[in-house]
Design a protein around this nucleic acid. Sequence first.
DNA 1: ACGAAATACACCTAATAGCA
DNA 2: TGCTATTAGGTGTATTTCGT
Length: 576
Amino acid sequence: MPEGMTYSDIARRLSLLEYSEKFELRIFPEYFVKEPFDYSKRFPSFRVVIPAKTIPMKANRSIRDRTKVFGFSSTSKRRLVSVFDNPVPPPSTERKSWKTLEGRDGLLDLCEGQFLTLRGTWIEAYGKELGIPLIISKPSMDSLDAASAPRTSTFIRAHFAQHGIAALMSRKEYDHILNVGMESEGKRIQLALVGPTQCVVFTDNNKLARYWFLDAVQEGQWWNEDNGPCPIRFPDLFEKHLRTRETYDHFTKGSHRGSIVADMTNGNKYFNGIGTSHAAEILHLACIHPETLSKDVFESTISFNGTLDRLLKAVREFFGHLETQRYKQFVPTRSNTLSAFENPASQSGFYNGFTKVYRKAVVRVPLTHYMYLKRWGWLDPRYGELKANWEDDLVTPGTIEYPGRLRTKELEVYKLKFVSQKAMINLHSRAKAKREGIEHPTLQPAYDPTPITWHTLHELSQVQDTAAADLADAFENDVQEESVSGKGIPARFYTYTAIKQQPYAGGSAIIVPNTNTLNYKGNIPELGVASNFQTKKEDALIRSGMKPAGRRASIHTGKPGRPSKRKRSDRDDLWR
DNA sequence: ACGAAATACACCTAATAGCA
DNA sequence: TGCTATTAGGTGTATTTCGT
């Protein structure tokens, strides 16, 4: 969930932090996750966490030490010192040495145990990142006077995933959580900037958050320059960037086949700060089907039917909620709840007030919007014409205390779910069956957590086709394989993607122009769309009387890499 | 031949959906 | 009602084929 609006909100709350010279960085290594890759090559300033297997073994280390999930000792940071041969951080003046240190950098070590100067107003959000500038006051040996100490500066760059936030917390609550134990409280703090009365705590229960410690002088700015402009802080730049020739070329060139929802949520180069929920809401606002090809959206600038204009307008309108009086009134910076992690009810009320689509089964639209959708044919045919006197009921009666509210009409929203399943086929037995002239054994699902519906059976037949093609290939090498290994052709797994759940309320099916959009994330997407319009392909199918109730799903063999292009068949002509 | 594109997967656990 | 299985989030990297 953490997306542009979330980061902006976090930064706004943290701006109330009271000024203090004496913050202290505290780290809780047991709430970090093992990093699967060595980031030191790409991010020299990033504190690399080293998988246990790369830690040189020492005779006196216990089993417990060796099973640590990453380089930090789980019991205390101090024990890390005994693990590495060269644990001494470099002096802050020798900046070059940060890069020369292999596997980790000195910035984190420099921060620890030092006086850290931090101001709430320094904390910024940019896209999907939070930046915390810090001044490190390094006390000299003979003086602990922070004011006169030599200084250097660093940025902490924070990126959260699910359930990750940074929050302002009283020192009292912080101490309480530590005393009770973070596990028992369910509050797992990863990093904390601890002041005498106030703290900034970073949490991410799923441990997917990432933190960078950047050299402020060397980097210049804390955010990732590879990402596009922040739509909240620089809306004009954001829009301009999406209207450049380079962006147009990227989304419209022949090889680009992505859907707009996938391109908005995958990567931050063009749609920085926008994730799954923001994308769903923005597309809803713009009356753009999430699975519209990006190519079509961006080409609209040439054909002048305004799809890109609608999209960019919707982006502005969506993030414009942060500027409304309602936001300032109902989303307080100063929480009056018992815990810093609790959100006031008024806040969730605010967000639920304008989010219409994401993870919702129905959407309520004003009558004017309903008419708009109807006018352009974006509504399911089930939704009929409005009564002649609909204008009479635009506003509910209301009372003196509560004025009448704008009457809305409820529309169903699509919820699509896709699930990957595995099927196993024994090519050897099939080859044998073919040699002996008997019928092929049926393809068996290797596991099937859900009941097989006709949809999945349909996809299974697709898998059968692929398996048959593989079988033909296998026959080419049949003799050779048998003579070498003596084992014949091995069994092989095929993975296929099937529709687990039909569109909510099952009124009609969406036919997707490009089946690639089914698997846009490798995860299981849940799409909420505002309206249901019929694609050209669906129109053609209806006309030809061949409209299937489900849709064809792309087949996956389970191996990574770009999928090979399907050969064009005669049937494809029906889809034009 | 080589850059670009598109896929899987690793990394987690609270909350929820589904089932007995 | 209690138990088990599934789901959500975002990014870097590996792996494969496409397009030129």
